[in-house]
Every structure is written in C-alpha cells, then in structure tokens.
C-alpha cells in the first residue's frame, strides 16, 4: 500500500504547487503593513481601502467593461460565424477555416504588436476601444471552435427534417440550432471572458490614455511592490469565481441526477 500513499502525495504536491502562491497572496491581504514584504499584524483594513484607491477601482471597472463588451460581441460574431462556416459555402471559406486558428496558436506578443501597427497605420486613436477591439480579435476564434464542436452530423439530420416540414431558415436557427449549440456558446463565452480578464500582453500594446486595465495596473506597480489592497481585491474576485464554479458544479450534478431519474 506504500505505492498508494506516494501516489496521493504526488497529487497533493501538484496541488500545493498550484495553490501556494495564491495562498500567500490571500494571507498577505490580511497584513496590516503597507507592503507584501513583511507580515506585521492581522487586519481587514485593506479590504476597506479598496474603494479609496480610485486607480485600482477604475482599472477594475475598465477590465470589466472590456471583458463584458468583448465577450458579448465576440460571442455573437463567433456563434453566427461557426454556424455560417458549418452551413454555407462562400468565397475563401477553406482559407478562413484555417486562418481562424492563427490567433489561438501564434504568440500573444506577435498578435499584440501586429494589431498595434495596424491601428497606427489606420491612424486609429488608442483608447479603451482599441483594447476592446483587440480582445474581440483574439476571442472570436475560441468561440468559433467551442461552438463548432457542438455542430455534428446529427444536426444536419434535424435541420433537414425541419426543412421538410416547411420551417424557415430563421426558425430552424432559433428553434433547432440554438438549443444544440448553447452549451458550446456558454463554454466559449466563459473561456473568452476569463482570457480577457487576465490578458496582459495584448492590452499592453494596444492601451491608450486613461484605459488602464487591472492587469496593466498591476504590471505598472508590480516592481515597486504591490500594495495589499490589490491582494484584497484579488482575494474577493477569487472567492466570487470559486462560488460561481461550485454553484455550477452543483447545478450540473443535480441536472444529471434528474435526467437519470
């Protein structure tokens, strides 16, 4: 049984590796001192201080704005495009089918600088909108891929049956396709939303005045030392995602149980 314990130990070690830095950050959010260098005393004050740090709050709101808008737009475009690519023949279809993987595989830095140089070329003003456009640019392919996997040959059969019964294109899309692809849309949107929340590299190159996002704000203060209010905000965000994820898991397993009955 020695093997069993060493196996368990290995799994635990991997999780320690994954969670250690986060544990440290959460611990230091309760530090009464103003740096992350020395732990002085236990205190909640940094949680209350978040509101006072207008830069931090603005950066956080900017991040939300960017993530929400870019997720909504890229989910809509990605979804209709996935269906378009699956259903129709049109010029350059084959080419597009391989080009859409580019933003997924090429290094972010290359995407960031190429978008920046195109904005420069087109004399577009860098602002929060240029970040949003850039985020849409790297998000759409993920949504397409995620939706695409839910469109199988089975779908064609349903569609044809509906067509034979005289359903219009629009009602086929609404009544038949949408329910099938919804899980793909949801998981695509979730992925894209988290990617957007976390993006440093692409935002770094395409940000304009007054459009600091949370990752950019953190990057700019990183070397001089992150203040514990940033830790506090991160801890709250982590708690929120944790709760959402757990709720989703419970809802899922209930659904599965219901279906089983």
């Amino acid at each position: 049984m020695k093997g069993k314990y060493s196996k368990l130990l290995f799994i635990i070690l991997v999780f320690i590796f994954l969670y250690l830095p986060i544990g440290v950050l959460i611990a230091y959010s309760f530090n009464s001192g103003s740096t992350n260098l020395i732990f002085e005393d236990f205190s909640f004050k940094w949680y209350l201080n978040i509101i006072k740090n207008t830069d931090l709050v603005n950066a956080f709101l900017n991040t939300l704005l960017v993530a929400v808008t870019s997720t909504v737009i890229s989910t809509v475009i990605g979804t209709i495009s996935a269906y378009g690519l699956y259903k129709f023949d049109f010029p350059f279809k084959k080419l597009i089918n391989s080009l859409i993987y580019i933003p997924i595989v090429i290094p972010e830095i290359v995407l960031g600088i190429s978008l920046l140089s195109v904005y420069t070329l087109m004399k577009l003003e860098l602002s929060i909108y240029s970040i949003i456009v850039s985020h849409i640019a790297f998000s759409i392919p993920y949504v397409i891929v995620s939706v695409k996997t839910t469109l199988t040959s089975q779908t064609i059969t349903y569609e044809e049956a509906a067509k034979d019964l005289g359903a219009s294109n629009y009602s086929i899309f609404k009544k038949i396709i949408m329910p099938i692809i919804t899980p793909g849309i949801v998981s695509g949107a979730t992925l894209v939303f988290t990617l957007s929340l976390d993006d440093v590299v692409i935002s770094y190159f395409t940000a304009g005045p007054g459009s600091n996002t949370l990752p950019l704000y953190i990057y700019s203060i990183m070397k001089s030392g992150i203040t514990p209010d940033v830790n506090a905000l991160t801890s709250i965000l982590l708690l929120v995602t944790f709760v959402i994820l757990i709720t989703l898991t419970i809802v899922q397993s209930r659904k599965i149980r219901k279906e089983a009955l």
Binding site: S117, Y119, T120, L124, E125, L126, S127, G208, P209
Partner: peptide, 9 residues
C-alpha cells in the same frame, strides 16, 4: 506611444 498614436491623443 506618441509616434504610434493619433495626433491629439
């Protein structure tokens, strides 16, 4: 930053 942004940014 200045060279790559529109005049007046």
């Amino acid at each position: 930053k200045i060279a790559s942004s529109k005049n007046g940014t």
